[in-house]
Design a protein around this nucleic acid. Structure first.
Lengths: 214, 214
DNA sequence: AGAAAATCTTGACAACTGTCAAACTCCGGA
DNA sequence: TCCGGAGTTTGACAGTTGTCAAGATTTTCT
């Protein structure tokens, strides 16, 4: 009988934990949006709370401190932004198709999620000053690089070629172009962004060598 | 005689202006170092003043507000960091020499000026949120790109080849590698940094095509 | 329904921020 | 020598920040 009672209590406890976690992520998402809007330097707890349906005190009920909150928000970003190109890779039958779909997705997310992306770069940079974020940033950066590498290596495969640069350099190139395009987007230089499409295609082709079959 | 008096006054006035400007840049340099140490988000005027030999009130004697001060500090950075590879380009007689000198300089400044470089990335990112910095950032970014392009195009010339990517993409690639290497440096992963040397050489060769003569 | 626990609000705290004005120090010119 | 202004310090201001505790409210269990 004690067992039965325990499992019942366990069920209750688990439900409470789930609820607790649900609210935690809810608040983390609100944090994410606030950060994306204002940047790390100017985001305060009260501002975050105003972007949620709660008062500022509740944040310390669900999070130990601001660092804990921001860290959790970063993890939310991770969940969203690290598998973005996987369907593109899976769905493409030819190199040309993969290249086209990738470029489309590249500029689609550039426009749709610009504030979120600038936040990522902001936090990656914070980790250069604040040791606290370093591990989380490293992990996400690793996953982003792997995501890009899946695209590149698959593209090379479809083109019957071998990648001309390593995973790290390939990521550096594509991420660099993305950063630049993001800057133009957020600066209202939309017309310049179009030019990056050609640059991106050139970069992709360079990465798999000139002898692509498509 | 009035002319004589006026020129005398002018001389005095000019000397005062020079003195004023000298102290301005002195304080801007102190600001630069403080920013490099703490990052934009955590740099206060009092902290800056403590890194100089003056008290915090003097900052408002020489600068209109914090924005003015930070902007002037960024301009100081520009003066230092935007001609770094020019002697390398001027002094290299062969492609192999240029490549070697460039890579050496690349890693030398990576180690020597790491805090300064992380500040640059921090401010470039701030400009994604704060319109105020955008023009200055754009200008510096332009100069950095031109600086890299002088290296690349000269390298291609020496190798009897044409650059495989445009100025923007070439900069994106090299700057991306630099950012990554900087992250590793500041995270105490010095052993990983060595690996970037090979990557950088590969990237350079890829940028001027495989048919280099050296 | 009523007790107990979980959740949320409110208001306060100490510390810190950018800004500015009043007072002080210092130095060149009359 | 003494005056006037440039340069500097000091202290204050109003506002904001992260944090926390006491109390109100809601939910949950018996």
């Amino acid at each position: 009988m004690t067992e039965v009672v325990e499992t019942k209590q366990d069920r209750i406890a688990r439900r409470q934990v789930d609820k607790f976690q649900a609210r935690r992520t809810e608040l983390a998402v609100a944090t994410l949006h606030t950060l994306a809007e204002l940047g790390y330097a100017r985001t305060s707890l009260r501002e975050i709370a105003q972007n949620s349906e709660f008062s500022h005190g509740v944040l310390h009920y669900y999070f130990a401190d601001k660092r804990d909150l921001v860290t959790e928000a970063v993890r939310q970003y991770e969940a969203v932004c690290v598998t973005r190109y996987d369907e593109v890779v899976a769905g493409a039958g030819t190199g040309a198709r993969l290249r086209e779909d990738f470029v489309d997705m590249f500029f689609a997310t550039l426009n749709a999620d610009a504030p979120l992306h600038r936040l990522w770069y902001d936090l990656r940079n914070q980790s250069l000053f604040d040791e606290t974020f370093r591990e989380d940033v490293r992990e996400i950066e690793e996953r982003r690089e792997a995501m890009i590498w899946r695209v590149i290596s698959r593209y090379a495969e479809l083109c019957d070629a071998a990648p001309a640069l390593g995973s790290g350099s390939a990521y550096a190139l594509l991420d660099g172009i993305f950063q630049r395009a993001l800057w133009c987007t957020l600066s209202g230089r939309a017309e310049e962004v179009a030019g990056f499409r050609k640059e991106l295609v050139r970069a992709l082709d360079l990465l798999v060598g000139e002898g692509q079959t498509q």
